[in-house]
C-alpha cells in the first residue's frame, strides 16, 4: 500500500493536519474526513461542477484534485462562503430569484458564480452563461440561475439595496 502523506489544509479558515492516502480526492477529504457534505459529488468525471470549491481563491472541481495537491493551501466550501443571517450575495440571489429546484447542483453553482463575480463584477448575461459552462443543472434550467447571479452582481456593486431577506 502506498505511504500516507501528511497534509496541512486550511478549510473555511480553520487549519487541519491530516494523514491521507495520496489517491484521496479533495472532495472525499472534505466530505468524509471533515464532514463537510455541502460539496456534492455529481458526475465524478470533471464535467458537472457540483463539487466546485475555491482552492486558494480559485474555483476548482474538487473531484479532479487530490487532497495531497492541496497541501499548504486554503479551501473555501459552500459552508464557509456565508452563514444563516449573513448569506453571501450569491446565496441570497439563489434564494430570492428561485435559482434552484432540487438543489443538488446549487453549492457548486454558487461557488462558481462567486468566483465569476470575483473576476468580473458586472457580467453580461452571456458572460454569466459562459462563466457557468462547467456547472450542470438537470432540473430548473438556467434562467433563474442567471437571474440569481445578476441579483448578486447588483447587490455587490451596490445597485440593489435589498435587506436581509433570507434570514431564516
Amino acid at each position: 500500500m502506498a505511504d500516507k502523506a501528511t497534509v496541512h489544509i486550511t478549510v473555511n479558515g480553520q487549519p487541519h493536519t491530516s494523514e491521507v492516502e495520496p489517491r484521496l480526492l479533495l472532495v472525499h477529504y472534505l466530505r468524509e474526513h471533515l464532514g463537510l457534505t455541502g460539496t456534492h459529488v455529481g458526475c465524478d468525471t470533471s464535467q458537472c461542477g457540483a463539487c466546485t470549491v475555491h482552492l486558494d481563491g480559485q474555483a476548482v472541481k474538487s473531484c479532479t484534485v487530490f487532497a495531497v495537491q492541496a497541501d499548504g493551501s486554503s479551501v473555501t466550501t459552500i459552508e464557509g462562503i456565508g452563514a444563516m443571517g449573513h448569506l453571501h450575495p450569491v446565496q441570497e440571489g439563489f434564494w430570492e430569484m428561485h435559482g434552484l429546484q432540487c438543489g443538488f447542483c446549487t453549492p457548486g453553482m454558487i461557488m462558481a458564480a462567486a468566483d465569476l463575480l470575483n473576476h468580473n463584477p458586472n457580467p453580461s448575461e452571456e458572460e454569466i452563461r459562459h462563466g457557468l459552462e462547467g456547472n450542470y443543472c438537470r432540473c430548473t434550467g438556467y434562467h433563474n440561475i442567471v437571474r440569481a447571479v445578476q441579483y448578486a452582481a447588483d447587490k455587490m456593486s451596490g445597485k440593489k439595496s435589498v435587506g436581509a431577506a433570507a434570514d431564516d
Partner: peptide
C-alpha cells in the same frame, strides 16, 4: 476560453 470551463482552466 474554448477549453473546458473556468474551473478546468484554473488547473
Amino acid at each position: 476560453p474554448h477549453i473546458g470551463d473556468p474551473m478546468v482552466r484554473h488547473r
